[in-house]
């Protein structure tokens, strides 16, 4: 089990995956907006999306879990 975490504080602009989606290592799963800039957040490893833990418009802090992956 792996989670994709926010690399910085920001607002969730877009969620790019749904439960059941297969993602590759390095694939963007969420786009955060911070300081007027869009920052894509990639999955570190490959897996299947088990759960999306945030909604568009949510505010997240650095280190918050965004997406849970099953390998």
């Amino acid at each position: 089990m792996a989670t994709v975490q926010a690399s910085m504080a920001g607002i969730v602009l877009r969620v790019l995956v749904q439960p059941g989606d297969r993602v590759e290592a390095g694939q963007d799963v969420v786009v955060l907006e911070s300081m007027k800039m869009e920052v894509p957040i990639p999955a570190e490893g490959a897996g299947v999306v088990a759960e999306v833990l945030v909604n568009e418009g949510d505010f997240v802090n650095e280190g918050d879990d965004l997406v849970r992956l099953e390998s």
């Binding site: 910085m8 504080a9 911070s34 300081m35 800039m37 920052v39």
Partner: peptide, 12 residues
Amino acid sequence: YAEDPERMLPSP
């Protein structure tokens, strides 16, 4: 700017 000088990404 409050940003990473290498990646030029925000650093709050």
